[in-house]
Amino acid sequence: MAEVNLADYDRYGFKVESQHVSRQQWEKMHATVVNSDKKHLPKWDALFRSNRGELPERSDKIKKLIRKGVPTQFRRKVWLKYSGALDRMDMNPGVYLAMVGRERQQIDRGVHPVNEFVDIIERDLNRTFPDNLYFRADPPIAAPAPPYWPGNAAPDGPISLIASLRRVLVAFSFFNAEIGYCQSLNYIVGLLLLFMSEEEAFWTLVVITENLLPAGMYTKTLSGTITEMKVFKDIVKDKCKPILTKVKEGGIVELDMLTSPWFLTLYINVLPNECVLRLWDTFFYEGSKILYRIALAVLKLIESDVIKLKDAMEVVQYIQTAPKRMTDVDKLMKAAFQRFGSKAVGHLSHHDIDRKRNEASAALNGGSASPSARPSTSSSLSSRS
């Protein structure tokens, strides 16, 4: 294979430069993230020391710490603990391996294809992060293991995560027959695998689809996604109406068509990776309201620029591409949680979202809320604010 310059890749194996982010912009973002890690590391170290090396139960203190940023080396533990994935995994020993083995059982029985999703998964494997060092069929020999991946110790050779991605996705397609597989899940699992083992990524995907997000987000009908976009549109009408009006006036596409990929991929390929990871820190602790807060923050930050545009297609393209250039992680997170000021999202709680979700679901289902309107994980969260 062609030689690669490892200096062109970040610590997660992604290319530093893109058509949206220059090397200089990336270096500035990276320096900010590294400095943030150093700044908050002593508090996290003290937290672990005071709890005998473990993470404590939920509290306002933990929520504030997480909102300020989780040092990269602690992300795996934080995500697993506060998402509920660790508990699910501990309560279901052997289940992941059993799901992995289900494919072989089907093959031995002469069943082909083993289920309706395997061929689709196969097609998506090489489309998942094609420029990432660890998702290439022929990874460069010089590439180290992902820095915070559990298998980092003395790898025997170059690591490709494609086989791991396939196992997790196929196992999940057997485990959750209602969803099976939906495009977007490959990106979510791919990013998880840079931080954790296959089994951990599997159970994290389970809690994302069963607990952290509303039902129906990834089913064939995408009923949950349709409901969420109706909810989001209603919230935008309250908090960011000028953009909604601008898009509607253009007559090319509805705003929900532009923003639904943000929710489905949990912002992968929408925001720069460091922003995605910071967002995920809070998402795994606070649930789906974070997706709304970030979406509103993005719209608030680009609102003045969008309103100035005259051409309808330019409006659409700007909304699609502007988030990819948002390299100021702290600015984005501040906008998401700030309650006052011209760029503020304001108050937006799980209660607000659940109420609107029930209303939207009832409207879409002739007056009665559907199962897709199940509440988010707000009941298990320490705060609904």
Rank of each mutant, 00 (worst) to 15 (best):
L185Y: 12
S173G: 06
A153H: 14
L133W: 09
I188T: 14
L165N: 00
P150L: 06
Q183C: 05
I141F: 08
N152G: 05
F135Q: 10
F175N: 02
L133T: 01
G190N: 08
R167D: 08
P144A: 00
I179P: 09
L185R: 08
L169K: 13
A163K: 15
S173L: 09
A171W: 12
A171G: 08
P146N: 04
Y134G: 01
L185T: 09
F174D: 01
R136L: 12
D138Q: 12
P139F: 05
P139L: 05
R166S: 03
G157W: 12
L133C: 09
N152Y: 13
L169M: 14
P147T: 04
I162Q: 06
L169P: 13
E178C: 09
A142H: 03
S173C: 09
F135Y: 15
I141W: 10
F174Y: 14
P158L: 05
R136C: 01
W149V: 04
P140D: 08
P130F: 06
Y187G: 06
P144M: 05
P146V: 03
F135M: 10
R166L: 03
I159M: 02
Y148M: 04
A177C: 02
S184A: 15
V170M: 12
G157K: 14
G190P: 13
N152F: 15
A177G: 02
R136Y: 07
E178D: 15
S173H: 15
P155I: 03
P140Y: 06
P158Y: 05
R167P: 05
P155D: 07
A137V: 13
L169D: 11
D131W: 08
L133S: 03
P150V: 01
N152P: 03
P130S: 04
V168G: 13
V168R: 13
V189D: 04
S160D: 14
A154K: 14
R136H: 05
A143E: 05
G151A: 02
A163R: 11
P144K: 08
P139T: 02
S160V: 13
R167L: 00
I162P: 01
L161P: 06
P140L: 03
P150C: 07
P144V: 08
A143Y: 09
P147E: 02
P130W: 08
S173F: 14
W149E: 01
G180D: 11
G180I: 09
L165V: 09
A143C: 06
G180N: 11
